[in-house]
Design a protein around this nucleic acid. Structure first.
Length: 822
DNA sequence: GGCACACGAATTTTT
DNA sequence: TTCGTGTGCC
């Protein structure tokens, strides 16, 4: 077999990594050094040169986005389409889910087990605390949740947790972990941690099983290896028992998941743990200008305990890093929005821009301001589509139908929409769960629905305990609305199960469910303000299901799920076509969260820094660079925590290809109250030579950048003024050709009203003549409603219209976001 | 049983 | 600011 023609396009170390087929391989890949490139090319090389079976290659990532990206690139790189599709590319969690789905009985799980996300997890913990009469405050729930997750990340079962508990508190927590695990078991459910831990437990118990799997999957690759936690690490160990073909790629400087149990020693000690490890260092950065790279190094240099490496680039020095300090967080956001707006006018593409913040909550303001400037954006991460109330409700119905043991799902929707099952009734149902033979809410509901005589026969002999007897009688005593509600609820689930048996596709099942529950009507009545949005979400869920069923990769997925079920399983709810679809879809919805907003390439990206890892953008705005916000230190004295925040800053900076703009604000609203801030130490770590203060900064804390040292320090004492005087520089987003920006800012900054018109007309570089024909027209806007046009600047789709909306007052909106009624 | 209201608490980061 | 929880009333 000859070398593929793409081999010469790789640099020497990349080529070394790609052509290394067997034995352990550690690729230390600096930011922007072609990490994904190496992984995908190595897969192609294994197939095309090594003549390795494609289905013996497993590539594991941490995020779905990374998995999707890798899939896309492998597909385009490998000539043989069929072969490419057989390579397993998956996140750790999806891989775990897949293993469990195919081997549910080994873990003593029902085929239809549910996957609990952290909301479900919290609800379950709360239910246990409730049952035990313990404190069920949020902090208590979170404490247990953190503890349990921590154990699972370490690969500890409740027994191991007990063994590792060295004080009373830990013992108590470990005990609770056991109770929690029992409850999960009874609910036929696995939480996220179990997706890793349970396969691990199977492997430990049955090494032959693990060995068999490792014979099948002979080439294992791991992306972002620095983020593996001990459980994942052990899982990899089992998967490679019969060989040591483990290729890991990572960068210790980009380890940002310590809080999720990631352990840096895995990558730092890989060489010692694996004999004859081949180490390849990728040190040439192809992404960023040298100045950006230097700034990143300024920040990361403060960390010790790193793999020694020097990242270099032959790219030009590039533009200085712009720094802007707003007088408050709103001004900061306005600055970013305006800067992007100006660049777009000059012909830049929205997709070139990204805004990175430390916490999701910071995104809101940027969202608002971008919308005001008529810039389309998308938010990646944050509350996911599948986290929305209406979506979770509908999925809970499906889960409760598929898995009657799933009490968290059942409890969620037993009275949603309202059907007369109130707190008192639910308390009666829960009270009955203490009786043997009644394990689940749906059992209890069924007893309430039954005739008393039958039940007495069934349960009386066993429950002499008067309290239990009483619990059952309480169920039987239910009458009227409550009883009716229970009857219709059970009927609803039964009908849905029936549909699952009789339909080939999931779509009609869900449509009929929506109809039967009258959920849309419920939304309209209970939440008229947001009804439109929420109904659209429900529509999108149906679309997502349809799309899933149409997806070309779905049949293969379904086949593997179906094949895993032995022939002697004849439960129709497990084997029916629609239920197969449902399980696969639920798994996916639990593990994948799509971005929200305008998802086309035509939008600016907003995300947390964590979400940005692995991505690159022409221009990056790194916002909120203040102490407490970033770094955000829970334990201010914990050096490890600070080191991780520093790596986070490093990740953020190295995402930028050509331009980096760092912003912060002098004061910021936290919980609705203003707090004054200090600049981030990470900003101060950057050599001022590389920075350039944007002259529009209304104030600044310190001397960033030598050019402006004098003028800025003077302004330090000038907190009240919003004007800016220092205009010496021509930073990239400052259009010097405009004449009265000063006035514009002076007018616009003191009050935080929508950006005034004067400002907008000023920034239009080449006025094309305003389209006044629209003045006086009636228009509608999706958010603001109907309004009347007061004035227009510009023409065409991009024209900016100032409109009087009776509902929200005066707003300036881009033409293309409006519908003109006449 | 359901609703409206007031109060208090809370935020990293993601599968 | 926004969320969830608890209270009191119909």
């Amino acid at each position: 077999m000859t070398s593929p023609d793409w081999l010469h396009r790789l640099n020497p170390p990349q080529r070394q990594a790609v052509t290394h087929h067997t034995g352990p391989l550690l690729v230390l890949a600096g930011a922007g050094s072609g990490k994904t490139r190496v992984l995908t090319h190595r897969i192609a090389h294994l197939i095309e040169v090594g003549e390795v079976r494609p289905d013996s290659i497993v590539a594991v990532t941490f995020t779905n986005r990374a998995a999707d990206e890798m899939r896309r690139r492998v597909d385009s790189l490998v000539d043989d389409e069929e072969a490419a599709s057989q390579v397993i590319i998956s996140t750790f969690h999806s891989l775990g889910a897949r293993l469990l789905r195919a081997n549910a009985p080994r873990a003593d799980l029902d085929w239809n087990f549910s996957i609990y996300d952290d909301t479900d997890q919290r609800r379950l913990i709360k239910a246990i605390l409730e049952r035990r009469g313990q404190d069920r405050s949020r902090s208590s729930i979170n404490r247990y949740r953190r503890y349990i997750d921590g154990c699972k990340n370490r690969g500890w079962t409740p027994e191991q947790a007990q063994e590792n508990a060295f004080d009373a508190e830990a013992e108590e927590s470990a005990h609770f972990y056991g109770l929690y695990q029992d409850a999960l078991y009874r609910a036929g459910a696995a939480d996220f941690g179990d997706l890793i831990l349970t396969p691990l437990v199977i492997f430990r118990r049955d090494p032959h099983f693990a060995a068999g799997l490792s014979h099948l999957w002979r080439y294992v690759m791991v992306d972002e290896f620095q983020d593996t936690n001990p459980a994942q690490y052990e899982l990899l160990d089992h998967l490679t028992t019969s060989h040591d073909n483990l290729a890991v790629v990572g960068d210790d400087d980009q380890a940002i998941y310590r809080w999720r149990g990631a352990d840096l020693t895995h990558i730092l000690g890989f060489e010692e743990a694996h004999d004859e490890t081949r180490i390849v260092k990728l040190e040439q950065n192809y992404r960023s200008t040298s100045l950006i790279l230097d700034a990143a190094n300024d920040v990361i240099d403060h960390n010790d305990r790193r793999h020694p490496k020097t990242l270099w680039t032959d790219r030009p020095r590039g533009e200085p890093i712009a720094v802007f300090t707003g007088s408050d967080d709103r001004e900061e956001a306005a600055y970013v929005a305006e800067s992007i707006y100006n660049e777009l006018r000059k012909g830049a593409q929205p997709a070139d821009f990204a805004i990175f913040y430390r916490t999701n909550a910071q995104g809101r303001l940027f969202e608002e301001l971008l919308r005001q400037w008529g810039i389309s954006y998308r938010i990646v991460g944050g509350l996911s589509f599948y986290d929305r109330q209406e979506i979770k409700d509908l999925l809970a119905y499906l889960r409760a139908a598929l898995n009657p043991y799933d009490d968290v799902a059942t409890a969620r929707i037993i009275n949603t929409p309202r059907r007369g099952i109130g707190d008192a009734t639910i308390a009666k149902l829960k009270a009955a769960l203490t009786v043997e033979g009644i394990e689940h809410l749906q059992d209890a509901a069924a007893i309430a629905d039954d005739e008393p005589s039958e039940q007495h026969e069934l349960f009386s002999p066993r429950s002499h305990n008067p309290a239990k007897q009483q619990a059952i009688e309480a169920l039987h005593s239910l009458r009227g609305v409550s009883k009716g509600g229970i009857v219709s609820f059970l009927q609803l689930l039964e009908q849905t199960r029936d549909d699952l048996l009789h339909f080939e596709s999931l779509t009609p099942v869900v449509e009929r469910l929506l109809e039967r529950t009258a959920y849309p009507e419920y939304v309209e009545k209970s939440d008229p303000d947001r009804a439109e949005d929420r109904l659209r979400n429900l529509g999108e869920l149906i679309n997502a299901i349809e799309e899933f069923e149409r997806d070309p990769t779905t049949p293969a997925l379904l086949r593997s799920v179906r094949n895993a079920i032995p022939d002697d399983v004849d439960d129709p709810l497990t084997t029916s076509e629609a239920s197969l679809h449902l399980r696969a879809f639920l798994d996916r919805s639990a593990l994948v969260n799509p971005s929200t907003g305008d998802d086309s390439a035509e939008s600016v990206t907003l995300m947390t820094i964590h979400g940005s890892k692995g991505l690159e953008f022409d221009t990056v705005f790194l916002v909120g660079m203040e102490e407490e916000t970033f770094p955000s230190l829970r334990e201010p004295d914990d050096p490890d925590e600070l080191a991780e925040e520093r790596r986070l800053a490093y990740v953020a900076i190295t995402r930028a290809q050509n331009r980096l703009i760092i912003t912060n604000a002098r004061r910021r609203r936290v919980y609705g109250k203003f707090k004054t801030t200090e600049p981030s130490r990470f900003l101060l770590d950057i050599d001022p030579q590389r920075l350039q203060l944007d002259p529009r900064s209304t104030s600044t804390h310190v001397d960033y950048g030598s050019t402006h040292r004098r003028s800025t320090s003077r302004r330090d004492n000038d907190h009240s003024s919003h004007s800016f005087r220092s205009r010496a520089s021509s930073s990239w987003h400052f259009d010097q050709s405009t004449t009265d920006d000063d006035t514009a800012f002076n007018q616009s900054l003191p009050d935080w009203s929508p950006v005034p018109e004067s400002h907008i007309t000023n920034t239009s570089g080449d006025p094309t003549g305003d389209d006044h024909t629209l003045v006086g027209a009636t228009v509608t806007h999706t958010r603001f409603g109907v309004g009347e046009v007061l004035s227009v600047s510009g023409s065409g789709d991009r024209a900016r219209l100032t409109i009087d909306f009776p509902a929200v007052g005066r707003q300036t909106v881009i033409r293309k976001f409006l519908k003109i009624l006449g």
